[in-house]
């Protein structure tokens, strides 16, 4: 399973590097959304700083939908899905590999977004480890849940519009918990943030297990 996961993740990341869809579309859209949020909130630094964690994770959330759609699209080419099914590759490995590739893309996106947010909103992290742990757990949760729901919508003709409808409500707890943890990290009060990690960890773990179990049947059904 792990060997297959590495194989699939490597393939997906290589495709992304070569097509540059994530680099030229997902990242600019996320940065642009931060700028537009800034316009909507006005020039007051205080308001921007207060809203920064929520805006950051909202941008990450919408980017998750784009990255997931892209991940599904890679396998939606006529023949490639059959190729995966007939190769004998472990479906759980495919799920883990695809989720890992999405997670890597989201991690890179967060670094860029963080730099943009520091520049635009003038915010600084005071508890770096809390923000890092929250990011890691939230990224895992977003990637595994996104990949699972991406597989669920893969065989449908309306998947581009259906996927956001399916996945955004499901990802709402991650948005809430990651935003609160980051707000605590920005405010320098780790005790308030740690409790939100207890939401992010189980969310990621539950969807990881569900994805490993269900991805095979979803791949067959798609």
């Amino acid at each position: 399973m792990w060997r297959d996961a590495v194989l699939v993740a490597g393939k997906d990341l290589r495709i992304e590097l070569r097509s540059r869809v994530a680099l030229w579309q997902v990242v600019p859209v996320a940065v642009l959304s931060l700028v537009l949020y800034g316009f909507a909130l006005g020039p007051g630094r205080r308001a921007l700083a207060g809203a920064a964690p929520g805006l950051f994770w909202l941008a990450v959330l919408f980017s998750t939908v784009l990255a997931t759609q892209r991940s599904v699209a890679i396998e939606s080419g006529e023949g490639t899905r059959d190729g995966l099914r007939s190769s004998g590759i472990d479906p759980a490995g495919v799920f883990l590999g695809k989720a890992a590739a999405v997670a890597v893309e989201l991690a890179v996106l967060q670094v860029v977004l963080w730099a943009a947010m520091t520049l635009l909103f003038g915010v600084h992290l005071r508890v770096g480890w809390l923000a890092l742990v929250a990011s890691l757990l939230a990224t895992c949760g977003l990637a595994v849940a996104g990949t699972l729901y991406g597989a669920l919508s893969a065989g449908l003709r309306v998947r581009e519009t259906l996927l956001p409808l399916l996945v955004l409500p499901i990802l709402a707890p991650v948005l809430l918990a990651a935003s609160r943890a980051w707000a605590a990290a920005l405010a320098g009060s780790p005790a308030a943030g740690v409790s939100w990690l207890r939401v992010l960890g189980p969310f990621a773990a539950v969807y990881l297990v569900v994805g490993v179990v269900l991805y095979g049947p979803l791949l067959e059904a798609g």
Binding site: K11, R14, R18, S19, E78, G79, T80, G83
Partner: peptide
């Protein structure tokens, strides 16, 4: 143990 060459080859355009 079987190999299928379908209508559309199972290939990734960017690879």
């Amino acid at each position: 143990r079987v190999g299928l060459l379908g209508h559309a080859p199972s290939l990734y355009d960017d690879l």
